[in-house]
């Protein structure tokens, strides 16, 4: 039996950071549509833009003269930072802020540089609030194919952007740490190295997404170093990382394998062949590091899985 897919969407948490006038605007649309909001874009002296299930809406109405005021932009920034902009130095450098509920607020505006390197964003002119949606249970159906003899296999998730890799990764992390009774899998220790704060959506180090009890998160930590730190200090059974691609990442993954830790990682790419050509990932093939490859189908509904391959299939495909 597979558990039902549950969408956890808490758009209301975003309302805490918005000025009353904007909340009022959003509340004027249908309640069911509010639940389907994917993005809220706020631009200085422009109308509010909502992305509802792929459809664009303007509030208070298209062509309306009412825009977001200067003091409202300031208010949002104050609320995001708890009146303490200096605490967001790192976030302003990266260009986004994670807020309560794991939602991400992207920023654009005047960038200040120091000797050619971005120091941060000063005058913020646009906010893009991406509502975090955690779909519990997307990975449930595939669990039997990712394990063998009661053990998790190292898995590489391959997919183009927006195909649902991260959602899948998140769900896998949850399943591992909670255990999976129908396959008699006990709960395992999971270490998440979350360089972009996207898997766990941590706020002050505490994951905002629902994970099981046995998850440790290194938030905003460079992947390669983070993996080594995890192995040394937290002794995880499974490491979860997002968007590998640099040489150091692959080295760290090989290192983790040698330490007996399983790795579940995601990588950008259309399919296995595409990924195979990357020189930085070369060591992974030599050592047969990954034992399962999950390919996400592009151009279809996010989360659609095209194929789950094993190294055997893959080598055959290559030799053909």
């Amino acid at each position: 039996m597979y558990t039902l897919k549950v969408e956890v969407n808490s758009v209301k948490e975003v309302f805490d950071v918005l000025p009353k006038r904007l909340v009022h605007w959003i509340n004027s649309i249908d309640e069911r549509e509010i639940q389907k909001i994917e993005e809220i874009r706020i631009r200085h002296s422009q109308a509010l833009e909502l992305d509802v299930n792929g459809r664009v809406m303007y509030l208070p109405g298209k062509g309306s003269q009412q825009g977001v005021r200067d003091e409202e932009m300031q208010y949002i920034l104050n609320q995001l930072s708890n009146y303490s902009l200096y605490t967001l130095d790192e976030e302003l450098k990266r260009g986004y802020i994670t807020i309560k509920g794991g939602h991400r607020v992207g920023l654009a505006g005047k960038v200040v540089t120091d000797q050619g390197r971005v120091k941060g964003i000063r005058a913020v002119s646009s906010f893009n609030i991406r509502i975090a949606k955690q779909t519990l249970g997307v990975a449930d159906r595939y669990v039997p194919r990712l394990i063998q003899a009661g053990k998790w296999k190292s898995t590489l998730l391959i997919g183009a952007p927006k195909t649902g890799k991260t959602t899948f990764l998140r769900d896998i992390a949850r399943i591992i740490s909670e255990g999976f009774p129908s396959e008699r899998l006990p709960a395992k220790k999971v270490g998440i190295v979350d360089e972009r704060s996207e898997i766990a959506g941590s706020l002050k180090g505490v994951p905002q997404h629902t994970f099981g009890p046995r998850v440790d998160v290194l938030d905003a930590c460079p992947k390669a170093e983070g993996m080594m730190m995890m192995i040394r200090s937290m002794s995880p059974d499974v490491l979860v990382v997002d968007e590998i691609g640099r040489k150091e990442d692959t080295e760290a993954i090989v290192e983790a394998m040698n330490a007996g830790v399983r790795v579940i990682a995601s990588v950008h790419g259309d399919d296995w062949h595409d990924v195979r050509r990357r020189p930085a990932l070369e060591p992974l093939w030599e050592g047969n590091v990954f034992e399962r490859f999950v390919e996400f189908a592009p151009h279809s509904k996010p989360g659609t899985i095209a194929a789950i391959r094993r190294p055997r299939d893959v080598t055959q495909a290559v030799s053909k």
Binding site: S81, N82, Y83, S84, Y86, T87, D89
Partner: peptide, 12 residues
Amino acid sequence: EMVYTMTPLAEA
């Protein structure tokens, strides 16, 4: 409080 521990203003 601000510089070394990055505490938000209210708490600091």
